[in-house]
Design a protein around this nucleic acid. Sequence first.
DNA 1: TGCCAGGCTGATA
DNA 2: TATCAGCCTGGC
Length: 269
Amino acid sequence: MVKMKLENFDLAHICESGQCFRMTQPEANKYEIIATDKYLRAEQYGDEVTFYCNEDEFENFWRHYFDLDTDYKKFKDAVDSEDEYLNAAVKLGSGIRILNQDLWEMIVSFLISQQNNITRIRKCINNISEKYGEKKTAEDGTKYYAFPKPEAFLGLPEDALMECNLGYRSKYVVRTAKMVVEGDISLEAIEKMPYKEAKEELLKLYGVGKKVADCICLFALHKLEAFPIDTHINQALNANYPDGFPFELYEGFEGVIQQYIFFYELFGK
DNA sequence: TGCCAGGCTGATA
DNA sequence: TATCAGCCTGGC
């Protein structure tokens, strides 16, 4: 068990921010997170956070996963004091972090996310994990399913994942898995690329467009300069920044600002 | 019942 | 290069 005080860290906000579809809040202040093949329980009361894992696992995996070594105060302080909308967004979404998630898991998750809602995205991901992921048992005895590896989808008919309620997105996942396994695209290489190069490479994947590529860059590759523009963000920018959003003020961490805006659009009204 | 949800592909001009 | 229909499906 690892217990610590954390500033600018809020598991509830991270859970609701929609960047991680396998994080749930079964009851107040308690959370469960599955990332690739790992399982974690956590609790948060104010700034007191408890991670139910050993010190080694925390230091070697979860510290990085939750992006605990990044100073988010610096990002919040940089917000233009005269920008009322953005200040309100940052205030509401305080404690959001950009997680360091697995590249393959994010590719599939955001392929599934298109024209979809968060509740259904979670269900789809649970369905494919239960059907194609490895069954695991956590130290506390909890049974869970690891996120399926690309090899698990190899050889499937393109509509096979319709059974898991993916709908027309089934072929995107099956074909992308094939590209990855057969080496048409290298995830290891993408992990080493700068933002623009990585995005360009991701756009080669079937079903990955600009928005999905930016989400993958932000939530898996931690390219904080990626600024995914979806319908919510588009509406927010049009409504609040008719003369254009001042990207130049937030160079290098546009994606963090995007998350505050996204969260505010979903929960601030 | 009909519409829409964190877009993308492929056809068409 | 830009525009646009069509796409699975659950929830409201």
